[in-house]
Design a protein around this nucleic acid. Structure first.
Length: 414
RNA sequence: GCGGGAGUAGCUCAGGUGGUUAGAGCACCAGAUUGUGGCUCUGGGGGUCGCGGGUUCAAGUCCCGUCUCUCGCCCCA
């Protein structure tokens, strides 16, 4: 290959794209802060065990998709495939149990060695929300409502459906799992090849199968409702009631399950039909056992992650450049003066573009192309009079403004 | 990891059954217009046709491999 190209599954984010990318983050950050979540970040890589122990050794994310490596010091590290494990590790490392409930918002790159597709990359980016140290269903409701608020602000809530389910507490889950294994084992002959593997590894996932034959079996499979303990059932009822109170519509989907071991109780997904096979836009759930698995004191938690690229694909925000003004000097003296003027305006928080070269025509053309709303033109004549000409591109009108009044004039204009 | 589709200029794409200097639109640059942008006109730069190999007198075109993208499965955001 003659030329370098980005590594498979990675993408450059060029300025126009970045504007959309950032607007998703900004929107999420704003909504999160309105709900009392504070932004934080953890490293992009961790000791491998942080992920292996939390997500489960056998999960695909850990066993086949992890960017794991040994550094020069012999440490076994991995690029993070998700955010939850790292934030929980940080919760433990920093003794944050004194701050519970700890409410965090974060975003950043994630890495999974998967086969790339639209809406699925090897380096992708997530926004993430976690509440650690809250066992109450109100936390579930708040976290989900926050996700819905972000989707609403992005103008894509109506393209998404909120699917909701419960996996119960550990006791419920064990009982349900056993019931599923019994049921599907009795029908092994008609199970798909994939589902036979699932039966060994993660029987719950059979419920999620897309195979035609599996679906028929699943239709008659036992439902978790019958295996929930009283407490787990009450918890789920409280979450549903809370969502209704919050005005967040949802659809209970008994087939919604999670791939990762650490989930308990509430599981949810905002899904869309607009992204092909990559339907999940924001997904998460409760993980009451996770902190303990990572070596902390038993601490409940709940959170979700949303794929920024997927959110960008779904929304189509017009990249809106900040209003900018071009400075167009004429002649050598003006050229020098322009540098001073640009500095003066920028210190006053007025965005200006000062071309490096070209005659008036060129600079005007460039100013127009950049989307400037106007240009400040001045040469020897204007300098002698102590004014600059402000040309408004929309109207084509020009006005002479005293140099001393310029900042005030431009401020007033906005 | 498995199965399908596709790669020609920065972008969107033309290039019947192989045939000689590979095209268009948009974009970019320059000039008409060295103190005035958008519109128009004129000209220009830019491609080892994803990459490597094979068949042939001759390959963008046919064959094989490979890389990347894409659709689905797996899995997931």
């Amino acid at each position: 290959m003659a030329q370098f190209q980005p590594v498979r599954g990675t993408h450059d984010i060029l300025p126009d794209d970045f504007a959309r990318f950032r607007s998703v983050i900004d929107t999420a950050r704003l909504a999160a802060s309105l709900h009392g979540y504070r932004e934080m970040a953890t490293p992009m890589f961790e000791v491998v065990d942080v992920f292996a122990r939390s997500m489960g050794e056998s999960s695909d994310a850990v066993s086949k998709e992890m960017y794991a490596f040994t550094d020069k010091g012999g440490e076994h590290l991995a690029l993070r495939p998700e955010y939850t494990a790292g934030i929980c590790r940080a919760f433990i490392s920093n003794g944050l149990q004194q701050h519970v409930p700890f409410k965090a918002f974060a975003w950043g790159p994630m890495f999974r060695y998967e086969r790339p597709q639209k809406g699925r990359q090897r380096q992708f980016h997530q926004i993430d929300v976690e509440v650690i140290g809250a066992a109450e269903p109100q936390a579930d409701v708040e976290v989900i409502a926050l996700a819905a608020d972000i989707l609403r602000r992005l103008g894509i809530l109506d393209k998404c459906t909120l699917l909701l389910n419960t996996l119960g507490d550990p006791e419920s889950r064990v009982a349900y799992r056993a019931a599923l294994v019994e049921y599907f084992s009795a029908h092994k002959a008609s199970l798909s090849e994939d589902s036979l593997k699932r039966l060994e590894k993660n029987p719950l996932r059979i419920l999620d199968s897309k195979d035609e034959g599996d679906r028929k079996l699943v239709a008659d499979a036992p439902l978790i409702d019958n295996y929930l303990t009283q407490a787990a059932g009450d918890f789920f009822a409280a979450v549903k009631a809370g969502l209704a109170q919050a005005g967040v519509p949802f659809q209970v989907d008994p087939r919604l399950v999670r791939g990762l071991d650490y989930y308990t109780h509430t599981a949810f997904e905002f899904v869309t039909t607009h992204l092909g096979a990559q339907g999940a836009v924001i997904a998460g759930g409760r993980y009451d056992g996770l902190i303990e698995q990572l070596g902390g004191n038993p601490t409940p938690g709940i959170g979700w992650a949303g794929g920024i690229e997927r959110l960008v694909l779904l929304s189509d925000p017009k990249p809106q450049a900040a209003p900018m003004l071009a400075i167009v000097p004429v002649g050598e003296a003006a050229e020098a003066e322009a540098i001073a003027l640009a500095g003066e305006l920028r210190r006053a928080d007025i965005a200006v573009e000062l071309g490096y070269k070209g005659n008036v025509g060129k600079r005007m053309k460039r100013a127009d192309k950049l989307g400037c709303f106007g240009a400040l033109i001045f040469g020897a004549d204007e300098m002698a009079k102590g004014v600059v000409k402000l040309k408004d591109f929309a109207s084509g009108q020009e006005a002479e403004i005293a140099r001393g009044d310029l900042v005030a004039h431009l401020k007033a204009r906005a």
